[in-house]
Simulated scan of single mutants.
Amino acid sequence: MSIFDQLKKHPITQPDSAYLAAHRFPDGNGFPPSYIDFATHLGWGKLCGLFLIYVPLGQHPDSWTVRSPWIKQAMDDFYEEMEHDPFLLEPDGYEGIEYSLIPFAMSENGEYLVWNLAHRQPNNELPIYILAARMGGIRYGAPDLYHFVEGCKNSEAIKTMLGPSYTKLPLTFEPLLLAL
Rank of each mutant, 00 (worst) to 15 (best):
M1Q: 12
S2G: 07
I3L: 07
I3P: 05
F4P: 00
D5K: 06
L7G: 06
L7A: 11
K8R: 09
K9P: 03
P11L: 02
P11Y: 03
P15L: 00
P15H: 01
D16W: 03
D16I: 01
D16R: 03
S17R: 11
L20G: 08
A21R: 14
H23P: 04
P26R: 15
D27Q: 12
G28F: 13
G28R: 09
F31G: 03
F31W: 07
F31C: 08
P33A: 12
Y35Q: 05
Y35W: 02
F38R: 00
A39I: 11
H41V: 10
K46D: 04
K46T: 02
K46W: 00
L47T: 10
C48A: 15
C48W: 05
L52I: 15
Y54S: 07
Y54H: 05
V55R: 01
V55K: 04
P56F: 04
P56R: 03
L57H: 01
G58W: 06
H60S: 11
H60C: 10
S63Q: 08
T65W: 01
T65H: 01
T65C: 06
V66R: 08
V66L: 07
S68V: 15
S68I: 15
S68Q: 11
P69Y: 14
K72V: 09
K72A: 13
Q73A: 14
A74R: 14
D76C: 09
D76L: 11
F78N: 10
Y79T: 05
E81G: 15
E83P: 00
H84P: 04
P86V: 06
F87S: 06
F87W: 11
E90A: 11
P91V: 02
P91L: 01
G93E: 01
G93P: 05
Y94N: 13
G96D: 08
G96R: 14
E98Q: 08
Y99S: 05
S100I: 15
L101G: 01
A105L: 03
M106V: 04
M106K: 05
M106R: 00
E108V: 12
N109E: 14
E111F: 07
E111G: 09
L113E: 06
A118D: 15
H119N: 12
H119L: 09
Q121M: 06
P122A: 14
P122M: 14
P122D: 13
N123E: 13
P127K: 06
I128L: 10
I128G: 00
I130K: 08
L131T: 02
A133Q: 11
A133E: 08
M135A: 10
M135W: 01
G136Y: 05
G136Q: 08
G136D: 06
G137R: 08
G137N: 09
I138H: 02
R139M: 09
Y140D: 13
Y140V: 12
A142Q: 02
A142S: 04
P143I: 10
H147S: 08
V149T: 02
V149S: 00
E150R: 08
G151Y: 01
C152S: 05
C152W: 00
E156M: 13
A157F: 10
I158E: 07
T160K: 14
M161F: 05
P164C: 04
S165D: 14
Y166F: 02
Y166S: 06
L169P: 08
P170N: 07
F173Y: 12
E174Y: 11
E174P: 01
E174N: 14
P175S: 13
L177D: 14
L177H: 14
L178Q: 04
